[in-house]
Nucleic acid binder design. Structure first.
Lengths: 336, 336
DNA sequence: CGCATTTTTGCAATCGATTGCAAAGATTTG
DNA sequence: CAAATCTTTGCAATCGATTGCAAAAATGCG
C-alpha cells in the first residue's frame, strides 16, 4: 500500500506537505498541490481511513441498534438512518440485539470502544422496559422513551394521534360501535393508542364501552380470537380497529367465519401499513407509519448533535411523527 | 480517556507490559497481570479499538452491500450475515446501493479505505448485469454470478431446483396443464427457474407448451394480467406457478375474477415465501428460501477466507441452497 | 539592495495501541 | 558459587495520517 510517505519521497517533499496538499489546504502552493495530486493518482494512493480516524479521534461511523433488521419496519428505519448518515458523511454499523438488554449494552460498549461518533437505538419491541442507555456517546432514541432526568433526543411515531386518527376515521364513516383490539396492556405504545381511541370517542360524544376494548398479543391469531368474541357478543361492533395489521387480518378472518362481509357488514382498520396490508383481500385500510422518514430524521438529528457538539441547548428534542390513514377496502360507511 | 500509558504510570510499569497483561499474555507474571487488570478496572480503562485496529491493519469489520435492506429478503440476509460475523468477532457495516453500480463501486472503495476485512455483495436486483466487483478485498457474492476467470465465492439459492420442485409438486398433485409466470426474460434467476420448470415437465413426460410460459415484471399486477390471459385462453391451465409471491397474489385475483375457485378449480404456487404468503387468503403455497441461512453461510465463508488467508485452494466456492415447498392452501390435487 | 511581509514548506510530536529484541531478574544446576 | 537457563519486563519502533510551530523561500516596498 502506498502511503503519504511514499508520495512524499516520489515528490521530493515532506509528508506534511503531501497531507496538506491532498487535503486541498491552501497553505500549499497551487503548483505543488497539483503535482502531488498527480503523483498520488499515478501511484494509486488511497488514504488509510483507519489511520486518519484514529488521529482525528472520530470514526465517522454511527451504530444502529435494533432488535431485528429483518423486521419490515426496522428495515425501513435502517434504510432511512443509512440515508441520512451517508448524506452527512457517516456510515452505519448495525447490530441486532434481539430484545436482549445485555446484547444492547455490549453493543453500546463496543461502539464506544470503536470510537463511534454516536448511536441510534431503534424501535425496541421491548418497549415496556425501554430505558435510557448508559453511554457517553451522543444518541437518539427511536420509538423509545426515557424516564431519566438528562435531556435526550427522541424520534417517535405518534401513537396517540394514530389511535385518534384511526378511530376518528371510522366515526366519520358513521360508525359508533367501534371496537379496539389493542396490543398487550403493558406496552407504552398500546396505552398511547388506546388513549387516542378513547379521546376520539369522547370528542365525538360517543360513549366508551369497555367491552369493546380487548388486548391481544400483536399476533394474527389473537386478533382472530378476540374478534370472534366481539362478533358473537350481545351487541357486536360495526367496526373493529386493530392495533396492528397482523391482528387486523385475524379480524377479517373472524368476520368471514361469522358470515359478516368486510366492509359491507363490518369495517376493519389496521395499524402500521405493513406490506401485507396491500396484499390481503379486501385490501386493508390502515395507519401508515413513515418509518423511512423516522429513520432519516433520527439520523439527521444525531448528525447535527455530533457536528455541533452534542445536545442542542441541553434540552430534550422530541419529534413526534404522525401517520396517515391509508384508505383501502376494509372500511366503508355504516350501512342503514 | 484513560490509555494504557495511564495504567502503566499508575502501576509503575511500562505500557508494553500493560498491553501484554491486558491481552492476557502469559509472558507476564500472574501477579502483575492481576494487578494491572485490577488497576485498569478501577480506572475504567476501555481499549481504543481504532488504535488497535489501525496498528493491526485490520478493522474487524466487513461491509455488506445490498440494494435495499428494507426489502424483506435482503433484511433476512443481513440478519444472517450479522449473526455469522458476530460469532466470528466481526461487525457489519451496511450500505444500500439502490441498484446503482456507481454506488456499489464507491461503497467498495470506502470499505477498502476503511481497511475492512471483507465485503459481502448481496442479492442484486440488477442481476442481469451482475459482475465481479473490482476490489482487492476478499468478498463473497450472494445470489450473484461472476463471468470472470478468477475464483470467487458465491452463495446462491438454487433457482433451478426451486423451479423444478415447484413444478414437480404440482405434477404430483396430478396437474398436467401447468402455466409458469416468470420474471423478466433477461434475469438469470428467471432463466434458471424456467429451466427447472421445463426439466420437471420433461422428467414427468409432460409436453411443454410455450403458451403456458409468460413473462411478468415481478409485480402483482403483471401476475394478474398474465393469469387473466391464461384463464381466458383456449385451453386454460389447472395450475399456475408464479416466479414470486407478489405475482402469485395477482394470479389469485385473476382466478377469482374468472369465477375460478382456488384451489378447487385452479392451484396457485408462489416463490420466495415472503410474509404476504402467510397472510393472503387462501394462504399461499410457495417455495421458501432460507435467506437467513444464506446470509449466515456467506458470512461464515467470508470469515474463513479472512482467517485462513483468502480463497481456499484458489478455487471458487459455490454453495447452492435449495428451498422448500411450503404447502398451504392454494394448491390441491386436480379434481376429477 | 536590504528589510519587512507573506507564502510555502518541513520538523517533530501525537493519537493508542502492539511487538521484536534485548536486558534484567529469578531460578536451576553442576 | 558461578554459569546456564528460564521468566518477566522495558526500550523503542511502528502503523499512517494530522498539525502547531518554526524555518525557509518568495515577494513587496522604500
Amino acid at each position: 500500500m502506498v502511503s503519504i510517505y511514499d508520495i512524499a519521497k516520489a515528490a521530493g517533499m515532506s509528508a506534511a506537505t503531501v497531507s496538506r496538499a491532498l487535503a486541498d489546504n491552501d497553505k500549499i502552493s497551487r503548483s505543488s498541490r497539483e503535482r502531488i495530486q498527480r503523483i498520488a493518482d499515478e501511484m494509486g494512493y488511497r488514504p488509510n481511513l483507519l489511520a486518519r480516524n484514529f488521529r482525528q479521534k472520530s470514526s465517522s461511523m454511527i451504530g444502529l441498534i435494533t432488535d431485528d433488521v429483518s423486521d419490515e419496519l426496522s428495515g425501513m428505519i435502517a434504510k432511512g438512518v443509512e440515508q441520512a448518515l451517508r448524506d452527512n458523511g457517516f456510515s452505519m454499523l448495525v447490530r441486532n440485539v434481539h430484545h436482549d438488554l445485555d446484547n444492547e449494552q455490549s453493543a453500546i460498549d463496543y461502539f464506544a470502544d470503536m470510537q463511534m461518533d454516536g448511536v441510534i437505538l431503534a424501535d425496541s419491541t421491548l418497549d415496556s422496559l425501554a430505558e435510557v442507555p448508559s453511554t457517553k456517546l451522543p444518541f437518539v432514541l427511536i420509538n423509545r422513551f426515557s424516564s431519566a432526568e438528562e435531556p435526550v433526543s427522541i424520534v417517535c411515531t405518534d401513537d396517540f394521534a394514530g389511535g385518534y386518527d384511526a378511530t376518528d376515521y371510522l366515526i366519520k364513516l358513521n360508525h359508533h360501535k367501534i371496537a379496539y383490539i389493542n396490543g398487550p396492556e403493558d406496552w407504552y405504545s398500546s396505552i398511547r393508542r388506546l388513549n387516542g381511541y378513547i379521546d376520539a370517542l369522547k370528542k365525538n360524544n360517543i360513549p366508551f364501552h369497555s367491552e369493546y376494548v380487548k388486548h391481544g398479543d400483536w399476533f394474527e391469531d389473537s386478533g382472530y380470537r378476540l374478534a370472534l368474541e366481539l362478533f358473537r357478543s350481545e351487541d357486536p361492533p360495526t367496526a373493529v380497529f386493530a392495533a396492528n395489521d397482523m391482528m387486523a387480518v385475524g379480524v377479517i378472518d373472524a368476520a368471514r367465519e361469522c358470515g359478516l362481509r368486510v366492509p359491507e357488514d363490518v369495517s376493519v382498520m389496521g395499524y402500521d401499513d405493513r406490506t401485507i396490508a396491500k396484499y390481503v383481500r379486501p385490501r386493508l385500510t390502515t395507519i401508515q407509519l413513515p418509518m423511512f422518514e423516522v429513520g432519516q430524521m433520527a439520523g439527521q438529528v444525531l448528525c447535527e448533535m455530533i457536528t455541533t457538539g452534542h445536545v442542542p441547548d441541553g434540552k430534550s428534542t422530541r419529534l413526534l411523527v404522525r401517520g396517515n390513514v391509508i384508505e383501502r377496502e376494509t372500511t366503508a360507511p355504516l350501512q342503514g
